[in-house]
Design a protein around this nucleic acid. Structure first.
Lengths: 204, 204
DNA sequence: GCAATTTTTGACCGTTTGGACAAACGTTAG
DNA sequence: CTAACGTTTGTCCAAACGGTCAAAAATTGC
């Protein structure tokens, strides 16, 4: 018994599946689930449609795989918020991480936004279960910080919503942000400006 | 010359077009442009597909009409921000109006969000033109208020972005908001709570 | 080198979709 | 009644779509 009984999926298989997921992320983020076609994803992945369907049994299967992975990364920053840390530092770090995600993973953010906009048909149970529990837990921590006089009084749930909304805005509404800021202020520095602004807004 | 030379469009025509636009708003907001079908819209409007196409020449035409109207209503609240008014009052009113729009016109908000998410293919010129000018103008007013010491120092553009993001969040991400708040706190009072929270956040 | 297995592809299928069209229907004015 | 006009519908079509399948091609294990 040197190895487990499931040596399935070769290195090549894993690589191809990864390639497809990368291409699908691009296409889904830009056109949404219904707007994206298997042909588009296949072309973006540099393979034929039947070939793609050899690795994923349906368009839905690709999407679900993508969004399942996404959720892990999505909740991670909030998970890191530590009750034993300094409130200001913890919240500042959280905002930083969220802005970095908007900058570095805008496609993931848009994919998520798309799913929620359509009524979260595939992840509603997760939102009502895991996400709600996590948020309630962190809200309790914030409430505790407030009781201890270490944080300005505020509604914890709406506080978290506001951080989500403002940070993700820079990924989801990026086109609008750049259009309004114009060529001058719309450069890559906008994420730094946003981070600085948001820290002041939420902690100042 | 009792009447102008263009008596076109009877009352019935206007009513039917209105009926279609109402149905289309519902369908587009829920499924996005690509996800919506003419049949769905026709059924929601209580008429046959060819009949619908008698009033609008294409799916695109319906969408464009809808989004053109929407933009008017969308910019109105910001337009009302008055340089001669009291800064705190003006900003508070703006936030109130935006939250009311999220509560009373969530479908319009989602339609707009959808368009931006897809890269704003149909309204990019408007964003770079009319919207940018309006925001720049109001940003200058805010900057003026700050110079006069009547408002806390802050980046006007990101300040406006933050108001947009947080208020629209309650329409666009409504499913998530309700899932996280749960049955108890997720009732109709959530918009009031949000308004109160946001006033504190932005003005407190 | 060769058989077994995995990967890739061209051709194909049923369904859905946006849209066209002519015929039918209804309404109104003379 | 009827001609003219606006409205409605059944039928049809071509393209796009998600997905299948058998066979070819490439790879792997021996």
């Amino acid at each position: 018994m040197d190895k487990p009984t499931k040596p399935r999926s070769t290195r090549i298989q894993r690589e191809k599946r990864e390639l497809i997921l990368e291409a699908a992320l691009e296409v889904f983020a830009q056109h949404g689930f219904r707007g994206a076609t298997i042909d588009q994803i296949a072309e973006a992945a540099g393979m034929s449609k039947p070939n793609l369907l050899y690795y994923f049994k349906s368009k839905e299967a690709i999407f679900v795989t993508l969004i399942d992975r996404l959720m892990e990364a999505w909740l991670a920053p909030l998970r890191e918020m530590d009750a034993d840390g300094d409130p200001i530092t913890e919240i500042r770090s959280y905002i930083r991480r969220k802005i970095e995600m908007a900058r570095d993973f805008p496609r993931e953010s848009r994919l998520f936004a798309n799913e929620i906009l359509q009524g979260a048909p595939r992840i509603l149970p997760l939102l009502e279960g895991e996400l709600k529990e996590l948020v309630d837990e962190k809200a309790e921590i914030i409430r505790q910080w407030i009781r201890q006089g270490r944080l300005k009084k505020t509604d914890p749930h709406h506080f978290i919503f506001a951080i989500w909304a403002t940070t993700q805005h820079y990924a989801d509404f990026d086109v609008q942000v750049r259009a309004v800021l114009g060529p001058d202020k719309g450069g890559e520095g906008r994420f730094e400006d946003a981070a600085a602004f948001l820290e002041r807004l939420f902690l100042g």
